[in-house]
Write a protein that binds this DNA or RNA. Structure first.
Lengths: 215, 215, 215, 215
DNA sequence: AATGAATGAGAGTTCATTCAT
DNA sequence: AATGAATGAACTCTCATTCAT
């Protein structure tokens, strides 16, 4: 079952699935159409996947495994949380910005049910969060990130921001380069939206807002 | 009197729908079950809604109309972008934190298809974004937010962060108060995650801002 | 579920099912064809039956409940095992002889799987065997049947003989009255095939055969 | 040598088929499983059999050809209908009693459709009936069986009784020796179940036959 | 002769929606 | 206005059979 001869066929099915899931949605996608687009018979799908859901799950697992692995390797070679976060953001936005159909499947189909969302969250999303969390933690230790930062909230906010960039991009009818948003997003994440000081515009505000204390 | 009964029935159907959609997902939810839970006959549903999707759409429209309206009124009474953003965030997290089923439906079912997501994004999400965007714009004019901030990115990041808080909360098995995350999220949004160190370009400011004192 | 309005519709489905099962066999019968013949929509079948198998099971249960009940009542009014066995045999052969399709379904479809056969045997066939067994037991007590007769074997042999008459009749292309075989079958069962004696032809043999002894 | 290997493979397929048909039923049995159990590839089955049904048909034909042939030879060496019937019954019950899977296939799968039953009845069952019929006819001529006996009915009743013993044995969860029922069945067939009492028409005979002593 | 990956027709069942009452 | 029995289109998955190797 694992080692079927035609590995290319499996790939063709997955590619076709991305296209069809993106266009029709998981429930609207017919297995027969995936088969047709992949150039195989309906039944052939079931030689490579247990069932329709398994196609979607395999898609996630394989794309994500590679994405996170690559992310870890890339991050390991960089110094400092800012650079690392920039790398993660850029990688995230490039992954989806380079393949609109894949983006749609991940942003939309991934969430088509609580059960599915849970499964997804419990597996690779956890890894992804762990990666970001580690970067933040090290950033705090090295002093590039604020020590009192609540890490969990920061991780979710970082991911949530990227996630929303992708979703907005999918739905936008203007064609723009998703990846170029990596810089602004990371900058906003690092510097915040608030103004600061007088000489530099942020200074004054910084004085005011500094009273917030502990929380 | 007849009108009153009608509205009550419509309300019961919507309430039942939230519960069933949250538990089974939109596609897994059977109209018959919604009817059963609402205590009406299957056919009665169609006296109040055009079809299954219309139930979900009506749900969104009505909840959101009230949510955004209330948000606008609340924001109008506050001064300064920071306070306003805090109000929006708090309101957002309280809405969902107070009704897990509603949260599930909004976080999950809302996104079950590109078509649905588009429809949703094109209507009230646009309004929501407009509200946040206005707050940011005014914040920039009044000087509380950085003038060079890219507004669109900031709006999406703000929403994305809140959105991810809700999604994580739904999936978390620990019971915690979602609304209490409003403060940290807004703070992070305003101040950013980066430290204001010496070797960093923002060194001078960091020294100033450390004196910021209580809000 | 139990009390649906149109009881006639249920009957029509069962009648159609007998015809279709008889012609095509259980596995060859399509639910759609049963629906068509019953003059209802495909889905309607499932308002009255859980699934395809339930149609067949219901058919058996209902026909048999009535058949055995009637048999018990008829037997209760008769005196002596011979008369009673004659009544049972006659009833059995009339039931199937009067409805070839029903006979086919019972002789053939009933046995299409071990699981099905077991289910059937464990329920009404057991009742049927019990009825015959009781008749034999009383016959032994009243002296009309040989006391040393192994009752279980006799019961099975009696049923097996009737059963084979029905099966042969179904497969025979000559049209003959199945019910008229009741007399010969019961007579054979009671008197045996062996010849007896001298004055009456059986006498001598009886003497001879008596030597067969113990075995 | 090649021939030998072939025959062995064909035999392995048939053996596997008996096991699988018995366990799953004809329709539930998958050709792939038969192949797996036989230790051959799926496609290999089709080098030895035309199709799935042909496996079942071949099974019947081969088992039955040998069974009836052996029966004829055995019968030819015996004298008198009683002994011959006893031989047939014993052989019948031993065949199945010695191989539960084979019994299941013959009792159950044989009857899975009218078409199949007809085919089976038209071929070897006819031969089997002919064999029994001949024995009875000769028995009538030699005087051991009642001359007025309706031969067809008697043949069917004899077979039906044996058949039911096998079916009951398959379904019984108690393990008992099926072959030992040959004696009782034949005795019942020859002597009948009826007592030879005083008030009964066969009174005189009964007195005689009572001397036959216990079985 | 043997393999086993590929085929593709086929059917049971569900369920949103309708409409006669 | 309300009912709920009836509808029937639609779709996943299975598996006997084939055929290139």
């Amino acid at each position: 079952m694992a080692r079927r001869r035609d590995n290319d066929k499996r790939r063709r099915i997955l590619d076709a699935a991305v296209r069809v899931f993106a266009k029709k949605g998981y429930f609207g996608a017919k297995v027969a159409e995936i088969a047709r687009r992949a150039g195989v018979a309906d039944g052939t799908i079931y030689l490579y996947f247990h069932n329709k859901e398994d196609i979607l799950v395999s898609l996630f697992n394989e794309v994500m495994a590679e994405h996170i692995d690559g992310g870890r390797r890339e991050v390991a070679e960089l110094k400092g949380a800012p650079e690392r976060l920039r790398a993660v953001a850029s990688r995230h936005l490039r992954l989806f910005g380079g393949n609109r159909d894949l983006a749609i499947v991940f942003q939309v189909e991934l969430r088509h049910s609580t059960r599915f969302l849970e499964r997804f969250t419990g597996s690779w999303l956890q890894d992804y969060f762990a990666l970001v969390n580690e970067i933040i933690e090290k950033g705090q230790m090295e002093g590039s990130l604020r020590a009192e930062l609540p890490r969990k909230v920061a991780t979710k906010a970082f991911f949530g921001a990227l996630d929303e960039m992708v979703t907005s991009w999918i739905l936008s009818h203007r064609e723009y380069d998703l990846a170029q948003l990596a810089g602004p997003v990371v900058e906003l994440f690092l510097d915040g939206a608030g103004a600061r000081g007088i000489t530099e515009p942020r200074a004054a505000l910084a004085a005011v807002s500094s009273g917030r204390g502990g929380r």
